[in-house]
Nucleic acid binder design. Structure first.
Lengths: 350, 350
DNA sequence: TCTGGCACTCTCTCAACCTGAGTGCCAAGC
DNA sequence: GCTTGGCACTCAGGTTGAGAGAGTGCCAGA
């Protein structure tokens, strides 16, 4: 699957062809290309080069008398070697950072805003995964009685995230009892990373099992349960899906249905994003490269975003394979950076 | 806009025609209808009746040599006067109540499950509004310091709902100070309905303004702010949108795009559901009856659901106008009832 | 190695035509 | 007066064939 090496002329022609096809959306013929390129080659010469490119699997004809269209490999070579990025529109950057600043009150809101920015500015579908919480530290745990057999557990994380859950319990507890458990557990667990809390709790149970009274045991179970089902909501925020409806490139209706189904299910796309962590920056899956069938006629442009230097999530867009990569790639890149910046709250400004 | 009254024969024929059209999806001709009806009338006679029905605006021909199709008014009359409901599949009822029981741990999860049930069982899009919280009572307020200029406010409601929000503050507060505010406010406000908390707070401020210290004032503002932006997330849960993609009836691609946009925006659909409160039970908007353009070629079947006897939200489905109402209506109805039952947690079982 | 020329292929569009389905209307029958 | 069979008419949809347009492949010559 390695990309072939091309001489300068072939590179130039492939670049011109892909750019032309991206902007016009119709197969590019030799005549068109001969006019669009500064080499001033005749259409016939160009045809020869195109025949070579076709043999290499970089372009192909939909039919005999149509022009040429880039294949997935053609796009891949174009993006890897030939693409010249467009400068970012500074107005766009201002919009993104402004909106993100406004939303910085709530993590959830921040993620949603980032997703919307991506979809609005690209006119495709925007994706953002919720930031991973495994490195967040526990600050406090509280239990509040709701009724004789239901207790509300509240977990407060160091960064202000709150998780809560109603737990069924086997007997009634007083407010005092529950407050005491909360204080006890908070003391033991505060400052620990959430991902380790479970282990600590289990170890604790082993260590002191004999003199552990039933209440403590129950409290530990409660906490574990509350930690376990971390984020109940969706862990992927999709927006602007409707942008993909009339996109023309996606002709087959059944295929479109499956694409939307994928957006609803979220699981597979999330998995895909999680796997894209090979690269440090923007990563691109063209057409079937992702190996995920519903995205067959789409491209996925993703980037990781960071909190305190650690990658905690991914964002990106899904659009047609025929997409102005030179604009979209920088946009996804900058959005990831700005989201990262917005996630690290500026304590003590000035 | 009042519906015409029909003689028995016309009613019978209209009913047969609508049922036939709903099941087959192609315009119904006089010949077909003559075979399908027990009256044993000749096609010619039926043509006469159909001409009358057309004159009344209940059916119409797509073109000269096609059969007849119900108009919106035809559907309306059919639903209001002619429809005989199908008995509910008891297996379906079991599925719904089972899934809802499993999800009863979290309100959010419950709502999402209900929406998914609706979409799975109808094969259309399911909608559920989040339950209105205005009658929930406040149980407790807490403030937790996050950093020198950010405080986390947590509101716990009587039913176990928790809302939280990071608030920017102008100076650092100690944990003790904040705990004290929380206790004070909790005492004043506990047991009040959330919708009145704001007023109470304002009155309180007026009453004791002179000797109110800066901290108290700030705490009140904090609380108000936290109450104000009640539910930050979406207040409508949509699922199974992708079911509507290949639906055939929705031919126009642009129309479909706008339908999906409507699902994303949510606001207008939410508004529509809120306005459907005239009726006590299931309500149906056929095609353009809703007055909302993106739903032009769709029908909306909704029902309110209750908590403690009070209507707190709406659920329903969006599908094509040509829809098996006899099955969908009972399904929406029972789902609303079961959701209501699941929302009222059975304290002290046995 | 590049170029012009030429035959060839294929899609797309348009118009003409045919068929099948269903209607509207009319006159005859019960 | 309602019902029925008959008949002419209309229209959508499928098929066919011709023509235009675009682009290619290949070849011979510069």
């Amino acid at each position: 699957m390695s990309l072939p090496t091309l001489n300068e002329r072939a590179q130039h022609l492939l670049k011109a062809l892909v750019e032309r096809y991206i902007s016009e959306g119709i197969p590019v013929g030799s005549r068109t290309l001969s006019q669009a390129t500064p080499f001033s080659l005749s259409p016939a010469t160009i045809r020869n080069v195109m025949a070579d490119l076709e043999e290499l699997g970089l372009i192909h004809s939909p039919h005999t008398s149509a022009g040429r269209v880039p294949t997935i490999q053609g796009y891949r070579l174009f993006i890897n070697q030939l693409l010249t990025m467009r400068d970012l529109d500074s107005a766009q950057v201002d919009i993104i950072s402004g909106e993100l600043r406004q939303a910085s009150g709530s993590r959830q809101h921040l993620i949603e805003t980032a997703s919307q920015m991506l979809s609005h500015l690209t006119r495709y579908a925007g994706l953002v995964t919720l930031p991973r919480r495994e490195h967040a530290r526990l600050r406090q745990i509280e239990f509040i009685p709701l009724s004789s057999n239901r207790v509300l557990a509240i977990l407060v994380m160091d960064d202000g995230e709150v998780q809560n859950r109603v737990l069924p319990v086997s007997r009634a507890y007083t407010q005092g009892e529950l407050r005491e458990f909360g204080a006890l557990l908070s003391e033991r667990l505060a400052g620990q990373e959430a991902s380790r809390v479970r282990d600590t709790l289990l170890a604790e149970m082993d260590k002191v099992r004999s003199d552990l009274n039933a209440l403590m045991r129950e409290a530990i179970l409660l906490t574990e349960q509350a930690m376990g089902e971390s984020t109940p909501g969706p862990s992927l925020v999709v927006s602007g899906q409707s942008n993909l409806v009339g996109l023309g490139d996606i002709t087959n209706l059944e295929r479109m249905r499956r694409l939307f189904e994928a957006f609803e299910t979220k699981r597979d796309i999330l998995h895909l994003l999680d796997q894209s962590q090979r690269a440090d920056g923007v990563e691109i899956f063209i057409g079937g490269e992702s190996g995920y069938d519903p995205l067959e006629e789409c491209s996925l442009v993703t980037a990781p975003y960071r909190e305190k230097g650690r990658v905690v999530g991914y964002l990106g867009i899904v659009g047609p394979t025929r997409m102005p990569y030179d604009q979209v790639i920088p946009l996804v890149d900058i959005t990831a950076r700005l989201l990262g910046a917005a996630l690290n709250p500026a304590d003590e400004p000035q």
